[in-house]
């Protein structure tokens, strides 16, 4: 049910997103049941995301869990407008434009001004040879700021907030530890107060103690910036800590979604039950 404008009740609304790689064919187009997991045995096309709909109210955090290959990273790239979908509609803040249909220039504006993204791999999110301060400024510049002092002060403020030693603002992030790099990424992502923040496996690969501190920081940002968040993780523990509601993805579709507590305490789908059991 694709509506043509966004519902004002939601800060973020995604309707029936489908991302297919490959040509598609009558077999997989008409009967998704014929797929072998997410792959069409006839034409070889992969349906990375199929008919996924998400809604998040302002300030709400939505968790998405699933294993590698479940389509959650593709979903995240589509939400950040890095991936052209096969079909679907995407609205922010009850807006009237389907963000999947806008011009490249408008897309760039939305990415720079309305969205913040934190990647699992900091090399995707940061310029490793630029000063950390400039990395934060980049987001401000892209959103139109042309004031050096203003941007520098904003970077300094965010560094204090993210508990990054102020002395390191001129250092490039390549000198930093993994946890510190994620802090710089978060500072950059929230630099111009975007209404929506996308977090893709942000703590994966970090030591447990470092993970805990980065998660603490995200919880603070969640509380104090009033930002709507989409948190993708293969780790149910991360989602339990951060998400109000959770969707479980497998083979490109959402198999179950609801309040995070409910999902954890009363998982209905067999796959979700396996996930929950393996966590405990």
């Amino acid at each position: 049910m694709n509506n043509i404008t966004g519902n004002p009740a939601f800060a973020l609304e995604l309707n029936e997103l489908t991302v297919r790689y490959g040509p598609g064919c009558p077999s997989c187009g008409e009967s998704p049941e014929s797929l072998d997991r997410n792959r069409c045995p006839v034409c070889g096309s992969v349906w990375a995301v199929r008919g996924v709909s998400l809604r998040a109210r302002e300030g709400e955090t939505l968790g998405i869990v699933g294993e590698s290959g479940s389509g959650k990273s593709t979903l995240m790239r589509a939400l950040h407008l890095d991936e052209a979908p096969t079909s679907g509609a995407y609205f922010l803040d009850g807006g009237e434009e389907n963000l999947f249909g806008v011009s490249p220039r408008r897309r760039r504006y939305i990415r720079d001004s309305l969205l913040g993204m934190v990647y699992q791999n900091p090399y995707l999110g940061l310029r490793m040879f630029f000063s950390s301060g400039a990395n934060v400024a980049e987001k401000l510049i892209a959103a139109g700021s042309r004031n050096v002092r203003g941007m520098t002060e904003r970077a300094e403020y965010l560094f204090r907030y993210m508990e990054i030693p102020f002395s390191r603002v001129k250092e490039p992030p390549r000198n930093f530890s993994g946890g510190m790099q994620q802090r710089v990424q978060i500072a950059k992502a929230v630099a111009n107060n975007p209404p929506v923040l996308l977090l893709d496996e942000v703590t994966t690969g970090l030591d447990l103690s470092v993970q805990a501190r980065v998660l603490d920081l995200i919880k603070r940002v969640q509380r104090e910036f009033g930002v709507t968040m989409i948190v993708v993780s293969h780790d149910l523990a991360v989602v339990r800590l951060l998400a109000d509601r959770t969707a479980v993805m497998r083979d490109g579709v959402i198999i179950e979604q609801g309040l995070t507590d409910r999902i954890l305490e009363d998982p209905r789908h067999v796959y979700t039950q396996t996930l929950v059991n393996s966590m405990l």
């Binding site: 220039r105 760039r108 000063s131 301060g133 400024a137 980049e138 050096v148």
Partner: peptide
């Protein structure tokens, strides 16, 4: 796309350094 942010960023970094 009028994507001039990288240029402005380089100027900013030059000022910072």
């Amino acid at each position: 796309e009028m994507d001039y942010a990288p240029m402005w960023l380089a100027l900013y970094e030059s000022i910072v350094r």
